[in-house]
Write a protein that binds this DNA or RNA. Sequence first.
DNA 1: GTGGTCTAGACCACC
DNA 2: GTGGTCTAGACCACT
Lengths: 127, 127, 127, 127
Amino acid sequence: MTVLTVAVDDATPPYEQLRRQFAQLIGSGILQPGERLPPVRQLAGDLGLAAGTVARTYRELEAAGLIRTRRGGGTRVADRPPTLTEDQRRQLLSEYASAYVGQALLVTADNRAILEAVQHALAVRTA
Amino acid sequence: MTVLTVAVDDATPPYEQLRRQFAQLIGSGILQPGERLPPVRQLAGDLGLAAGTVARTYRELEAAGLIRTRRGGGTRVADRPPTLTEDQRRQLLSEYASAYVGQALLVTADNRAILEAVQHALAVRTA
Amino acid sequence: MTVLTVAVDDATPPYEQLRRQFAQLIGSGILQPGERLPPVRQLAGDLGLAAGTVARTYRELEAAGLIRTRRGGGTRVADRPPTLTEDQRRQLLSEYASAYVGQALLVTADNRAILEAVQHALAVRTA
Amino acid sequence: MTVLTVAVDDATPPYEQLRRQFAQLIGSGILQPGERLPPVRQLAGDLGLAAGTVARTYRELEAAGLIRTRRGGGTRVADRPPTLTEDQRRQLLSEYASAYVGQALLVTADNRAILEAVQHALAVRTA
DNA sequence: GTGGTCTAGACCACC
DNA sequence: GTGGTCTAGACCACT
């Protein structure tokens, strides 16, 4: 679970950085339904955060239906994480791609490299 | 210039959202060297922000060498925006791609759609 | 910590006056690595400034790598403040000396007094 | 007269940077009583400033008694620039030296280099 | 309690 | 008219 990182110098607050990472891990299936998340205090210690900060992340993930917390039973990925309509999927994917291309163009004018970087990332993620 | 937007409900602070957007517009060449940026107060009004917030965005862009401001003379894109080494380019591109793929997998498991969305965004941007 | 002062009638803005003073205190070792800086609001109150003004000073010092701030955790001198190349050192020292001599000549034509004032200041600082 | 420079990226406003430089040139005798200063518009053009900015510098120098302006007669160094008491001289010199030492310590811990830089600057100035 | 950000409006420096 | 800085106070994120 040490895939998780928090960049202190990022203007985006830690609880939100964490939330996004969990959302990705769950949405991509790397974290499977029913799988256990690390205890709040342990994760907080590992990342150098206060427990309350991690607790807030879990609270927001639960509100979004991505995880479920049971008293004394730890925190687990929800059995059936909420889904989107096909239209919403397309819309979001298009926005993400546009944002990525915007960033990538800042860094290279090479369209081919921009595509290959995605292929590479896909290969790594779905390995 | 109304391509610029600020999402109030985003945890990332407005001055930083704006900064990133300008960085992309400049890096991708949509804003050309020497081209004028909107006056601080006008942009602030358009976006519903305080002038100081936009001023901070401009200040940070100038510190990064992307723009050049002259008191009383407006704000323009720098003549020679700073460049990166080839290694830095590759590193950044790889990070961006990884983040995009992470988001995309949240929304679809279809690798082909993930790539096509990038191709589409490229087509639009470089049109 | 009341070595710090802000001259209201100086054309140099307060945030910059403060920044320079801290830079000197840190660079000369009067403020040691790890040592705590006064809280933003306390310092602001002591100096008759708005909190945001002091906050800006701290922000710029952090950007320069001289200090390290942690949300909710106060502000401290960085562990390893950044260093300069030998060439940069010589260049800067030469500029500072030239500026000093320029000021001193305004006030006395006595070369010996100009040197002795420096010796005296050195004795005080490194005491 | 091209000894004069204005650093655009300095937080100290141009009119004040200029004022200090003239004060030094006059106080150190490099500009002699009665000697002519460059016309406002010419100097403004050379430095890339608006005429009003230079005019303000001259206005403040005249208010301080360092120069005198006569209609149609250009601007000249005052015949008897105002002087300071011996105590004021000592006090100011001490402050300047202290500021110099503060800056220098930021850049080198070598007391000897700090003194030699002053000797060098003196040699250049009084050459 | 500590730092970060934002607003609203004011004044200054500059072109 | 344009950018820069400051204030005063509010709310948020974090320890």
